[in-house]
Structures are given as C-alpha cells and as structure tokens.
C-alpha cells in the first residue's frame, strides 16, 4: 500500500513557474468575470433609472408592478434587511480579532528585543549574539504589510456601511408585505391606452433580449470558472529540454488556447448588451413622450425607480459583506500562522538567551 509522498515534488523552478502561472490565470479569470459582472450592474442601473420593466407593467397605476414584486420576494427570500444588518454588525468584531492577533505577534517581538538590548547594555561586547532587531526585520516587514491590508479593509468596511446607510430605507420598504408595499407607492391615474402601442411591445422585446444576454452571461461565467489545467508537465519538459522555463510564453500560450474562445464570447456578450441598451434608451424616449407626465405619475415613477435600485443595491451590499466576512476569516488563518512564526523565533531566542546568561555568569 505504498504511496510515494514525494510523487508531487517538482524542481524549485517548476514550483515557482506554477505559482506565477496560476496567478496569471487567476488575473485573467477575474478580468473576464469582472467585466461580465460590471456589465450586469450597468444594465441593472440603466433599467432602474428608466423605471423599466416596471413602467411597462404599471397599467392600473395603483398596484405593485410585477417586476417590483419579484424583486421584493427575492430580497425577502435572501434574508432581507436583517441578514445584512447582522453581517454589518459582525465586521468590527472580525476586524478587531485580526488586529489583536497582529498586535500580539509584534508585541512579543518587541518585548524580546527590549530584553536582548538590556542584556547587551549590561554585558556589552560579551553579549556576542546577533541583535534581535536584525533578526526580526523580515517578520516586522510582513507585519507592516498586514497592517496596510487591514487599513484597506477598514476603508472597504466604510464603503459598505455607507452603501447600506444610503439604501437601507428603500430596502426596508422593499421587504414589506405586498399590501404595505402597495400602500407606500404613490398612485397615479392609469397610463392611458399605452397597452396596445407599438413602442411598449418593442421595449418588452428588447428587455427579453437583455434577460437572455444576462442568462448567457451566467452560463459563460460558470464555464470560465470551470476551466482547469495543469502546467506541471509542460514546465518539466521545458526544463529538461532547454534547461530553463519560459513561463510567460508557455502560460500565455496555454491561456490563449483555453480561454481564447471565452474571451471572444465575453466581448460579444458585452457588445450585444451595449447595442440593446442603446435601443432601449431610444425606445424609452418615445415611450416617455407618449405617457402622460403629471406630478403623481412622476412621483410614482421616482419611488418605483428607487425600489428597483434598492434591490440591486441589496444584491451588491450582501455580496460585499460575504466577501468581507470571507476576507477577515481567511486573514485570521494567515495571521495565526504569522503569530506562530513570531512565537517560535522568540521561544528560540529566549532559550538561547538563558544559555548565554548561564555561561556569562559562570565565567
């Protein structure tokens, strides 16, 4: 039942090439997925600002348009306001836990160095071991890096909190049951005989196309993320044949083969959204001109727009909060490893110190 624990071991150069190649791949995937997500946010923003699709569904002028109802149910189903409030409340504690681990780690380095300096002052050149300050340089640099990361995280927390404060009122309204939601939306006399007009059908068709583009996007994102490949053999072969690894060439070549088609499909997806959104904006102008514009109608439209964008903000805020929670938990693990490194070296230095002290006292 022998399994060779060294089976996966590779030369150093291959190991480094693999980690660079992996981060190259990670960057490409993030860029592709990021551009798709950005396009979805843009699309949602434009539609919300045009009060679409709600304006097309809002025939009676006093009931809750279907798309707003669906958005309300979606938010409630994902836990509504309470779920994000709870995550927001947890952020400061997660931050504090990370700070404490970091501060504690750096403190034990400082304390040991202080003692080392005191003894060096007392025994001067007889205290002939390397000063702790020199030994701890790289650990302190690493600690400094963690501090920067935590400061950036604090800014991110602030962004999320502000986003939450801006939208929580509307999100709360969206979370209300249908009757209360309906009562909260100002009513306006029904949209005249818009139902039959051609521009309403054109707009509806355009919105269906946008939905299809978004659905394709989700499939595309899944496929992009599912791509896996291993460069080990290629790097090993290169090392054997040429004695060196041209990581960049090999990785870029592989990434082109694996992701070339996806990159094109992403660009095509973004282009078609751009075209359709432009058409929607033109049709909407025609639609808006047809609709009667009086105070009640525009007041109602304002609230419907806010409700639609409250849904989009809810999705964004909860994804930010999930990202933040994961960030802090991942960082805690990394900081605990850092803490172990600090306590290990300090333990070793203390043991060494005691021995040196004994020798000096004897001599």
């Amino acid at each position: 039942k022998f399994s060779d624990i060294f089976e996966k071991m590779v030369p150093m150069l291959v190991q480094q090439s693999l980690s660079i190649s992996n981060s190259r791949k990670g960057e490409l995937v993030n860029r592709l997925v990021g551009s798709l997500r950005e396009a979805t946010n843009l699309c949602n923003g434009v539609l919300a600002s045009l009060n679409l699709p709600a304006a097309l569904e809002d025939l009676s002028g006093d009931s809750v348009p279907q798309s707003i109802l669906e958005k309300s149910r979606a938010v409630i189903q994902q836990g509504g306001l309470n779920s994000i409030e709870q995550l927001i409340k947890d952020l400061p504690e997660l931050l504090l836990r990370n700070r404490e681990i970091l501060d504690e780690s750096l403190k034990i380095l400082n304390d040991e160095e202080t003692t080392d300096n005191e003894l060096r002052a007392k025994f001067s050149q007889r205290w002939n071991r390397t000063p702790s300050g020199d030994l701890y340089k790289s650990l302190r640099a690493e600690g400094g890096n963690f501090r920067n990361i935590l400061d950036k995280a604090v800014n991110a927390d602030q962004v999320v909190k502000e986003r939450y404060n801006t939208h929580c009122e509307m999100i709360a309204l969206l979370c209300k049951p249908e009757d209360q939601l309906c009562a909260a939306i100002p009513s306006a006399n029904p949209a005249k005989t818009l139902q039959g007009s051609e521009v309403v059908n054109v707009l509806k068709a355009q919105l269906v196309q946008l939905d299809e583009i978004k659905r394709d996007r989700e499939v595309l994102e899944g496929e992009i993320k599912a791509v896996t490949f291993d460069m080990t053999t290629k790097f090993l072969t290169a090392l054997v044949q040429d004695g060196a690894i041209n990581e960049e060439a090999l990785s870029t070549g592989e990434l082109d083969t694996r992701y070339g088609a996806y990159t094109q499909r992403v660009q095509q997806n973004l282009r078609s959204q751009e075209e359709i959104l432009a058409q929607v904006q033109t049709s909407h102008q025609e639609f808006a001109a047809l609709k009667q514009s009086n105070a009640e109608a525009s007041h109602r439209e304002e609230v419907l727009k806010k409700l639609a964008s409250a849904h989009d903000s809810y999705i964004e805020i909860s994804s930010n909060l999930k990202e933040g929670t994961k960030f802090y938990n991942d960082l805690t693990e990394i900081l605990l490893k850092f803490q172990n490194k600090c306590s290990d070296i300090v333990f070793a230095r203390k043991t060494e110190r005691e021995e040196l002290l004994k020798d000096l006292q004897q001599s």
Partner: peptide, 16 residues
C-alpha cells in the same frame, strides 16, 4: 472586488 486580495499571502514563502 472591494477587499484586498490575500492570494499571494496564502502562498507559503518556500524560500523562507
């Protein structure tokens, strides 16, 4: 993404 990436921190510095 909003939060800093921890990717390169997760890679244990083999050289250390």
């Amino acid at each position: 993404s909003l939060y800093p990436s921890l990717e390169d921190l997760k890679v244990d510095k083999v050289m250390r």
